[in-house]
Design a protein around this nucleic acid. Sequence first.
DNA 1: TAAAACCCTTGAGTGCACTCCAAGCAAGTA
DNA 2: TACTTGCTTGGAGTGCACTCAAGGGTTTTA
Lengths: 132, 132
Amino acid sequence: MSQSLTQTRYTISEVEARTGLTQHTLRWYERIGLMPHVDRSHSGQRRFTDKDLDWLAFVGKLRATGMSVADMVRYAELVREGAHTVGERRELLERTRREVRSRITELTDALAVLDYKIDMYAMKTVSGKAQQ
Amino acid sequence: MSQSLTQTRYTISEVEARTGLTQHTLRWYERIGLMPHVDRSHSGQRRFTDKDLDWLAFVGKLRATGMSVADMVRYAELVREGAHTVGERRELLERTRREVRSRITELTDALAVLDYKIDMYAMKTVSGKAQQ
DNA sequence: TAAAACCCTTGAGTGCACTCCAAGCAAGTA
DNA sequence: TACTTGCTTGGAGTGCACTCAAGGGTTTTA
């Protein structure tokens, strides 16, 4: 757990550029407890570390799963509470995983319907028959 | 295009039971133009047909793709406008299909991260090491 | 030194997709 | 007849995830 002396610190604009999240969103994430406490400069400006960027990347993956912000905040709380919450964290991720799997199934089904419909239209464009 | 004389007509409660959509949502769909005009009884109550149920099932698939309500309404308008809108309808569905495909990719990626993280926790539960 | 660029906070506003409410009409049952 | 159930409308309210505004401090550039 040693720490480099030349640790890079990023301003909020730099983090915005790197993550694609707006400054508004980054501040909001901190406000609602979705970020571990972010370091500040002597004048009170945020200075993000690479660790913060890693966390944001992970949060981005959780967001991509469709997990609600409330659940992501819950997860962040559990991380802050320490090692004894590992079981609950895993449960949260496992539940999310089940939801993602069923979402993928649902999307795949819908995709098949879309394919079918598009094929119909492809025929219609030539034959001129009516359709829903 | 022949029509049965014993055509089944459903009340809004029956449609609610069959589709899982609430009565509120069904009325709202009609209000915003997402339904073709629904038949009424002599006293003004809605009487849905099997064709309406088919349409709702299709709309359900579109919703499952993540298509916005605005786009679904646009699609419904195009259907009402007739056969000459077939090209635009197909474009709309093709755009949706591209979005669904990339959403599936995104979910699959996120799923891999989830799997990885859950595996880590599985180890942690035994070894007791700290983690994000 | 002055202007421009950047950052801060609190609190309000936005867009989406519903979801509910109030007031009232109509049909069926005791 | 009285009551219950089910349906109607227009409009207001809700929850989510941001997104923006106002007013002010700080840092960099000309």
